[in-house]
Design a binder for these strands. Sequence first.
DNA 1: TGGGCGAATATGGGCGTCAACGGGATCGAT
DNA 2: ATCGATCCCGTTGACGCCCATATTCGCCCA
Lengths: 154, 154
Amino acid sequence: MDRFLSSAINRIDSKGRVSVPAHFRAVVQKRGYGDLYALRALDVPALDVGGLDLLDRYEERIALEDPFLQTADDMSFFCHGDGAFLKLDQDGRITVTDFLREHTGIEAEVAFVGRGTFFQMWEPSRLKAHGEAVRARLLRLRQAAAANRRGESE
Amino acid sequence: MDRFLSSAINRIDSKGRVSVPAHFRAVVQKRGYGDLYALRALDVPALDVGGLDLLDRYEERIALEDPFLQTADDMSFFCHGDGAFLKLDQDGRITVTDFLREHTGIEAEVAFVGRGTFFQMWEPSRLKAHGEAVRARLLRLRQAAAANRRGESE
DNA sequence: TGGGCGAATATGGGCGTCAACGGGATCGAT
DNA sequence: ATCGATCCCGTTGACGCCCATATTCGCCCA
């Protein structure tokens, strides 16, 4: 398996370390990621974590912008400057720095969520709330679509 | 790694010196930069620091301007005249001169921010404010794009 | 089908190394 | 002689390395 799938919650120890789920570590190795890179997600209190190829996508996008306009600068600032390296120690743990805690609200536990080509880190209770909100939105969407279809057929 | 990534905050000592993050120093060496060159960023209170190829970028920009107009002259003055060399001592520190403090408001601490091909130096609290502004702009961009897509599909 | 064994994983903590930091010593220019 | 810049060394604290323990889960066998 070469994609980040499913989720897990792990505890942060007294030294501020947390184990990355073994399954994720296997994917990291299979994909040949040396270092992990974490970005603060734009609209949710979560971190997007992946290899450096995570940046490639952003850099391609930036290349489409006029490099002398503000937007290109903002994008570069966001992906180059507002990220952090997560170094796996040889037991497969990373240290949770203030940089990570600030954006996510993480304190004692971390929820790891697979997202295919990358994974996310959440504060568990916020993840739960977010998950419920996502389900509610999708449900409304589905019901709205059904209502439209009934309306059209009349 | 050959790009300037992530960020760090370091203290200025009583002699006015500050350590350039070890990770950045490694990139400097890998890129073969002898001296570092610092330019005052145009629209933010930050310094753009990199090798002399940093100038290439600005010179390309100037080349796009009509040499008979004032803008080209202004730009040349800005990038050729308004920069400073930063010499790394053998512990990897630079001295923070008034030239650097003036434009940035730096006093006791320096925030180093990777930007891919170069890095920036900020006064930490100003960096924080700027970062939030950038995120807000990017979020608006994202939401505007989502609204467009909905609009098209109707 | 239930119990127990063993491997893999999560977790806790001691220890060495390195980077950031502080300050004395040296050199040179004014 | 003084000031400033550079070198050099010692200290400190954070982080990575290593090993020990615990807990979970799957597997095998009775």
